[in-house]
Simulated assay, not measured.
Amino acid sequence: MVRVAVAGGTGQVSQEEAPTTTTVAPEIHWQIVDYNDKEILVEALRGTHTLLSFVQILSDPDQKAQKNLIDAAIAAGVKRFAPSEYGSKGTVDMAWWHGKERIREYLEEVNEKEKILEYTLFQPGLFLDYLAYPYKTAKHVDPLQSVFDFENKRAIVVDGHEDSIMTLTTVADVAAVVARTVDYEGRWPTTGGIRGNRVTFSRILEIGRRVRGCSFTVDKVKVEDLEAGSLKASWGLEAVHRAVSEDQASALLKAVSIGVLLSSSKGAWDISDELNQLFPDYEFTPIEDFLAKTWEGKP
């Protein structure tokens, strides 16, 4: 088994991916590091084969931490690196994720002349667990709202783009595929698409009707309004990620709704399937099975 380092190991997603427990196993070692000190990072990474980053993008607007991690990984002789991704393939109309583009560009830059750091972008689309809001279905990842509100049987859809694609993958499936990828001895694909369920907005609403026992109330919004920064819907997101401060919450929640809707109409959530192909025997959790089980007996 190779030595794996996890940066940002106290985060929710990283705890799903890493073999952490309430009692730290003997083979797991915690270390507090200064991401601004490259020498400390190099020493901490010596002997590491694979580095997985879960650095919170919103907390590192200039992406200095991840760039320093990449530099230190190269200096320490780390073979493989996975940046903090775990979402859509594109970041169009999603300003809060533009930091991902900076890191993608930086990885291309450091590998421009020769491949000195193997890497993959883990992209599972939206966590299917978010459609269980407000119920928690993952060990560590908290419930978050989306434009599909199964609790109140309602949704927001872009008018004329009802067949836009969303990729939805459970947190558990993402963790399992990442673990397999870490153990994989071949060369990683640069894009690590994880396609749990590839479904249209219309299909999600059909499933919602079946598992919730009635049709959803659907607010249809116009592309031109979204492009102008206006969300003309009868409701909006209320649950904010813990990494976001209270004074930023309202604006970000509106931006997230607009961004997800606009980007979905442009194909940002139609995830590729590189890791499905790499592990063809892995069986992903079907969306209808997951939601039927989650919402059975719920008011």
Results as ranks from 00 to 15, higher is better:
66 Q>T: 00
168 L>A: 01
255 A>T: 09
209 R>G: 14
117 L>K: 10
92 V>F: 11
128 L>E: 02
132 A>R: 04
64 K>M: 14
15 Q>S: 11
173 D>N: 07
249 A>D: 12
171 V>H: 01
235 W>P: 12
75 A>V: 02
37 D>L: 04
296 E>I: 12
216 F>V: 08
151 E>N: 14
17 E>F: 14
223 V>W: 09
188 W>Y: 01
25 A>F: 09
208 G>S: 09
299 P>I: 06
186 G>V: 07
14 S>R: 05
47 G>E: 05
113 K>Y: 03
281 D>W: 03
167 T>V: 12
70 I>F: 07
264 S>N: 02
200 T>M: 07
103 I>L: 04
186 G>S: 04
18 A>W: 02
99 G>N: 04
123 Q>L: 12
210 R>P: 07
26 P>W: 09
200 T>Q: 04
81 F>M: 02
254 K>A: 14
281 D>T: 03
236 G>D: 10
230 S>F: 13
99 G>I: 08
141 V>M: 08
54 F>G: 10
80 R>E: 00
74 I>N: 01
151 E>V: 08
2 V>W: 14
84 S>V: 04
178 V>H: 02
291 L>C: 01
100 K>T: 02
263 S>A: 15
142 D>I: 07
61 P>Y: 15
147 V>I: 14
297 G>V: 13
189 P>M: 00
81 F>C: 08
147 V>M: 14
2 V>R: 15
222 K>N: 06
31 Q>I: 08
58 L>Y: 15
163 D>E: 12
226 L>Q: 14
120 T>I: 02
126 L>W: 13
145 Q>D: 11
145 Q>A: 13
239 A>D: 11
57 I>G: 03
283 E>V: 07
101 E>G: 14
222 K>H: 07
294 T>H: 05
227 E>S: 12
126 L>R: 07
250 S>M: 14
218 V>A: 03
89 K>P: 07
191 T>H: 11
165 I>F: 04
76 A>D: 06
169 T>N: 00
168 L>I: 07
298 K>V: 11
142 D>E: 15
51 L>E: 00
41 L>H: 06
287 I>V: 12
208 G>I: 06
86 Y>P: 00
41 L>D: 03
121 L>C: 04
288 E>D: 10
63 Q>S: 05
232 K>P: 01
225 D>E: 07
173 D>G: 00
215 S>N: 13
238 E>W: 09
155 A>F: 02
8 G>H: 08
157 V>E: 02
197 N>Q: 01
290 F>M: 04
233 A>Y: 01
178 V>R: 08
211 V>R: 09
215 S>H: 15
17 E>P: 00
273 D>H: 02
265 S>N: 14
184 Y>F: 13
227 E>W: 09
180 R>C: 00
262 L>S: 05
184 Y>W: 13
35 Y>M: 10
123 Q>W: 06
236 G>H: 11
115 K>V: 07
29 H>L: 09
142 D>Q: 14
158 V>R: 07
75 A>S: 15
282 Y>A: 03
129 D>N: 09
26 P>M: 12
272 S>Y: 09
299 P>V: 10
91 T>R: 12
30 W>Y: 08
112 E>N: 05
167 T>W: 05
196 G>F: 03
3 R>C: 12
199 V>S: 07
130 Y>F: 09
54 F>P: 00
66 Q>Y: 02
189 P>E: 00
135 Y>S: 13
213 G>V: 06
105 E>M: 14
186 G>C: 03
289 D>S: 13
42 V>D: 01
38 K>S: 10
207 I>P: 04
198 R>N: 14
80 R>A: 06
